[in-house]
C-alpha cells in the first residue's frame, strides 16, 4: 500500500456563477520514502493538489488517505491536529513570522505538543543544525539571506518529524547557488532520514534530485517521455 493514495480527487472552486475545477478525478500513489517533483504550466493545479495533500484545503470529491488513514473527510479541528502531526510545509516565500527569531519560528509547531521547554530546545537545536544554521538562533528573518530564511523554514517543517514533507516551489525565489544548496538539503533529508517529499517546481534543473517527475496539465496527470523536460 502506498503512503499517499489519491482516488478520483477533485477540487472545484466557485467564483460567482463560474465554476473552476483546477483538479479533476486525479488518481495518484506516492510511496513512502519517495521524492516526487510535480511540474506543469501555471494554473494547472499544482498548488491546489499540494494543499489537498497538506490538509489545508479539502477535496470537493474523491478520497485521500495518508498512511492508511482517510484525510479527506476529517472535521476542521481533527484536520488541524493531523497537519500538526504529519505534515511539514515549505513555501516559496519562506513565510517565517517576522517578529520571531529563527529559533522561535522553528519552535512554533512544537508549542502544539506536550513537550517541556528543554525537550523543545533540543529538538529545535537539532533541526537548525540539520539545515546548517545552528549559529543563527537569535537572528530575525530580516537579518537572514533568502537561502538562510528558506533553511529556517525547512527546519520548521521537519522539527516535528512529519510523515510527509510538501514544498511549493521551494527554490522559486532563490539564486542558483542557494537553490542548489536547498535542493541538496532536501535530497539529504530524503535519502538520510527517509522523508517522503512532494515538491512543486518550475525549474527543470531541480528535478534531477527527485526520483519521480509528474506532469500536471489542466488538472490531470499526463504521461511525459522520460527526460523530455530535462536539459
Amino acid at each position: 500500500m502506498a503512503l499517499i493514495e489519491c482516488r478520483q480527487l477533485t477540487r472545484t472552486y466557485r467564483r460567482g456563477n463560474e465554476e473552476i475545477t483546477p483538479l479533476r478525478d486525479l488518481d495518484l500513489d506516492i510511496e513512502s520514502g519517495g521524492f516526487v517533483a510535480l511540474m506543469g504550466p501555471s494554473g494547472s493545479g499544482k498548488t491546489t493538489l499540494l494543499n489537498l495533500l497538506a490538509g489545508i484545503d479539502r477535496p470537493t470529491a474523491g478520497t485521500l488517505s495518508v498512511a492508511g488513514k482517510p484525510v479527506h473527510n476529517l472535521p476542521r479541528r481533527a484536520l488541524a491536529n493531523w497537519r500538526s502531526a504529519h505534515v511539514g510545509y515549505i513555501f516559496q516565500l519562506y513565510n517565517l513570522i517576522p517578529v520571531l527569531t529563527a529559533y522561535e519560528n522553528v519552535e512554533l509547531p512544537l508549542l502544539l505538543q506536550s513537550l517541556s521547554r528543554s525537550e523543545r530546545h533540543d529538538r529545535v537545536a537539532t533541526a537548525l543544525e540539520a539545515v546548517g544554521i545552528e549559529d543563527r538562533h537569535e537572528h530575525y528573518p530580516r537579518q537572514l539571506s533568502g537561502g538562510q530564511e528558506q533553511r529556517v523554514a525547512i527546519a520548521r517543517a521537519i522539527v516535528t518529524e512529519p510523515t510527509i514533507l510538501l514544498a511549493d516551489e521551494p527554490t522559486g525565489d532563490l539564486d542558483r547557488q542557494s537553490a542548489t544548496s536547498v535542493m541538496e538539503l532536501l535530497a539529504q533529508l530524503n535519502s538520510e532520514q527517509g522523508r517522503t517529499i512532494v515538491m512543486v517546481t518550475h525549474d527543470p534543473r531541480t528535478t534531477e534530485w527527485a526520483d519521480t517527475v509528474l506532469h500536471l496539465e489542466k488538472g490531470r496527470l499526463v504521461e511525459q517521455a522520460v527526460g523530455s523536460e530535462r536539459p
Binding site: 497538506a54 489545508i56 476542521r76 479541528r77 488541524a80 491536529n81 493531523w82 497537519r83 500538526s84 502531526a85 505534515v87 510545509y89 513555501f91 513565510n95 513570522i97 517576522p98 512554533l108 509547531p109 502544539l112 520548521r156
Partner: peptide, 15 residues
C-alpha cells in the same frame, strides 16, 4: 493574514 495562515498550516486551530 499571512502569519495566521502559516500558523494554521503548522496545525494551530482557528480557535
Amino acid at each position: 493574514v499571512r502569519d495566521h495562515a502559516v500558523l494554521q498550516t503548522l496545525g494551530f486551530t482557528g480557535p
